Amino acid sequence: MGLNAGLVPPRADAIVKAGLLELIDYADREGDWSLRRAAAVLGLDHVRVIRWQHRAQAGRLDDAPPGPDEAAHALLAAEREAILQIAEGWAEIDRSHRKLAHRGSRLQAFYASESTVLRVLREAGLRLPGPAAREPLEPRAWPEWAELVPGVIMIYDFTHFTRAHRCVVAVIDVISKYWLATVVSAEESSTQVEVAFTRALVAEGKEHLLDADLLQELATGTVPDNDERIPVLLAISEPYWVWFRP
């Protein structure tokens, strides 16, 4: 019964409790020991033994599960029905249990978390259609002038140093793997990217690509067509690539 393992643990099953009570009764019958003395030898509080005796008379030596049978904040039957009704009417539009949870609160039909909505739908055997399929994007054509040689294709990326509250943007030549420029700043924005690429162009000896008149014209939102002054083609994707016309 585990009686040789030292003091009785805070929680014990009904078999151990019954065995301890039997030992205490035996000590009382055969040795005329008091309940306090027998409980002390067994490493038990006598109040705990008395409580076990009362529960044994009622046939309830097993510990009851903690807490109530149903949580006070559990969903009501009406709330479950409201979740299923919202899902039936809006599943094809929202297509997500997260959106359905917000939909229910906006319509004042129910107030439940996203995970609760998902659990109710699973218990009911409902499966949402999921996000709509997207049309495949046509791959962008590779520029004819973008040769796979050093000094033509560059890539940049940010690294965050959270303890220092700083981020670093680095510009690297894709072909030669040469680290061209680094900018350390407290924020991540297009300004840091512009400074980093400006330093990279200077490091590569391509200051002539930094046309001040062209940059001022682009800043106003005007992009000239077929202008030889435009030296850079920027394609935003993952990762970020920048091609420079040789």
Rank of each mutant, 00 (worst) to 15 (best):
G125K: 01
E70R: 12
A133T: 15
Y111A: 06
P139T: 00
F161T: 10
F158G: 03
E88A: 13
W145V: 06
E147S: 09
H73T: 04
R95S: 14
E81K: 00
E147A: 15
T116D: 01
F158N: 02
D94C: 14
F158W: 15
L100G: 10
M154Y: 09
A164T: 08
P131K: 14
A164P: 09
H97T: 11
A132T: 12
L100C: 08
L107T: 14
A133E: 15
L118A: 12
L107H: 13
Y111I: 07
L128S: 11
P143W: 05
R95I: 09
R163W: 13
A74W: 07
I93F: 12
V120W: 03
H97F: 15
W90Q: 12
V152T: 06
R98H: 03
P136R: 06
Y111V: 09
H165I: 08
L128N: 13
S113Q: 10
A132M: 10
G125V: 02
R98S: 09
L76C: 08
P131R: 15
Q85Y: 01
R127D: 14
L100P: 08
R127K: 15
Y156N: 08
H73K: 11
A124M: 03
E79M: 02
Y111L: 02
I155L: 07
Y111D: 13
M154K: 09
V152L: 02
L75E: 13
H165L: 15
